[in-house]
Design a protein around this nucleic acid. Structure first.
Lengths: 340, 340
DNA sequence: ATAATTTATGCAATCGTTTGCATAATATTC
DNA sequence: GAATATTATGCAAACGATTGCATAAATTAT
């Protein structure tokens, strides 16, 4: 910026020592190598002159940027903003800044983002965009890039991931619906090439089996994207079937909003004529009409935990691989009710 | 990261030229100083060897980081995520990365954020957190830091700002309500030390005057924060008055949600018994119960425009100051209806 | 063909910090 | 007091890129 910079040399000259001594005082790891008298003199001169290290020079020498690249599909989905919050709170406390990039679920965008992060020499990555088969993950392993997967995970089990336990979530949903008397339960699945889409479907299957309910394959619709539009299309398909459906479990809240749209267009009362359950408990889900029954995934905690692990990986990229599954909670609101 | 880096010297050695020649070929501004034959040979070797410039070294020499610091109050408010989207799309296209920081409307956090951005030598700032009297702005001017204010602005007119035209917004709201027959219109104001809080109140006053409606000062409540809780408290105060109120204009959508909460608790039908208008048209406002009538502020465009101006300021910090006020739109939904 | 001019490329200083090693200063041991 | 050991500090190389200036090479003018 515009002001002439104060360098280590300027401070050293003022105190009458060498710049390496100033450098040593400013580094907690080497501060004890300098006598206290000189150290104090240096510290007060540093404050007085407003000396601020040149981080470019530091990074050139240490090869560390103290930045972390975070890839999310789309920051305007409030759920991802919560993850970022968790990540930021943890990383900031450890002296890192995060550079956030939206990939909009586009392969090319993801690649160019990774390239940009590489150019910037981020110390590590948090990847919230992994597909089940994810080349980018293999690439990072090959390059020795420290990273952690958050929310979504590739199928590579030799990496670190922090996710929500989607199977528990699915079981909770089906158990809740079964207790309300529902048997004809439809499922709107997210994309199966994404782990959340896939695992939530498995949770649906497992929940149905555990509740002793029959699964009618016709009552499952697979969506290509986690979007309101796809959710609405799926609801349209289900309602066009000449089958009794008393409840719909939807693989995420955004798609559930699409289901709401279709129900409203058809004059079907949500929570009364039919029950709807979402997944994520995105912010404002309690403000929808009706307030959405959904599985609360602890997004902030996922972010925090992912950041914690990443710091460990940056310090030692050989820590053991792990998948941390945080327990979700079912939040019952007005979109579910007893079978009529 | 872990892989041994390819340097300019490695490429130069392989091609049989000096590293300064390689550097010149890679810089579009100096590429013409090298013969095409050598340039092509260098470019193919660069690609073949996977050379990637060390941005620390570049930045140390050029004193440019190609990062921009963006300060927002809280990224989990989806409106700010929209601004970030606009900012990111524009800056990314010009080779910048953005470092986002949440200040949570805390003075100390804002200060430490500015300090952190300074340490990182961001090339400029976008400040979405400015108070009307904002020391941080004076500080940036003094230091010669390029910055642009977005959404919220300080009262310093010698700086660049991109905001929504809150007066037009207020006039639209009151005109809409007047056409519905409302005369006893209450106003829930955001914090007056924040420009949006202040200007939206001015818009309310101006709109009432222009509609020829009397202003009852008792029907205005001032909130300390733009929060759901404060909105609810304000609604509680208004409804405790022994006065007829047929409509409430609320200074932002989050506070309007608090008003919704209070109405629901009192069994008052929103849009029927009383009309509510918000401000911002935050994402999902159309999903609330009832869908919220609100002023749509073009957040993405504000972000985009702020970023565009910032790029100009980074290139020449002496460009003329300006305040760009983008026109908002009234979005009428079900929270407003004719006077009963 | 020679001289003058223009273009292309190499050299090395610079940016500001860190840190291994050498030297100086201080403390301890005999 | 002299010899030895320890601590404190300075020196300068290194990190990798950019770029002004000098020099070499190529082109143009006479």
């Amino acid at each position: 910026m515009a002001k002439p910079r104060v360098t280590l040399k300027d401070v050293a000259s003022k105190v009458g020592v060498h710049s390496s001594t100033v450098s040593r005082v400013l580094n907690p790891a080497t501060k004890d190598m300098v006598t206290e008298e000189i150290a104090n003199k240096i510290l007060s001169t540093v404050a007085e002159m407003g000396y601020r290290p040149n981080t470019f020079a530091q990074s050139l020498k240490t090869n560390r940027s103290y930045t972390v690249g975070v890839m999310v599909p789309d920051l305007t989905n409030p759920s991802f903003a919560l993850i970022i919050k968790g990540i930021d709170n943890m990383l900031e406390a450890h002296g890192y800044s995060i550079i956030v990039a939206n990939t909009y679920n586009l392969e090319e965008k993801q690649k160019s983002t990774l390239e940009k992060f590489r150019e910037r020499h981020v110390d590590g990555l948090i990847i919230a965009t992994a597909k089940r088969k994810e080349e980018l993950i293999d690439d990072c392993i090959r390059e020795g890039t420290p990273f952690v997967q958050a929310v979504r995970a590739s199928e590579n089990i030799n990496v670190c991931s922090v996710i929500s336990d989607e199977l528990i979530g699915g079981n909770m949903v089906i158990s809740h619906l079964a207790h309300l008397g529902h048997k004809e339960i439809a499922y709107i699945a997210g994309p199966q090439f994404i782990s959340t889409g896939f695992a939530r479907y498995q949770g649906f299957l497992q929940g149905m089996m555990n509740a002793g309910l029959d699964i009618d394959q016709e009552l499952t619709v697979f969506c290509d994207t986690f979007s309101e539009e796809e959710g609405r299309n799926a609801a349209s398909k289900l309602l066009a079937l000449d089958k009794k459906i008393t409840a719909v479990y939807v693989g995420n809240d955004i798609m559930a909003l699409g289901v709401y749209d279709e129900l409203e267009a058809r004059g079907i009362k949500c929570g009364i004529d039919i029950s709807i359950v979402g997944f994520d408990d995105m912010p404002f889900a309690d403000k929808f009409n009706p307030p959405l029954t959904t599985v609360h995934t602890p997004m902030v905690n996922i972010g925090t935990e992912a950041a914690r692990i990443l710091i460990d990986k940056i310090n030692d990229n050989n820590i053991p691989a792990r998948t941390i599954k945080l327990k979700p909670d079912l939040i019952v609101r007005n979109s579910t009710g007893p079978v009529r």
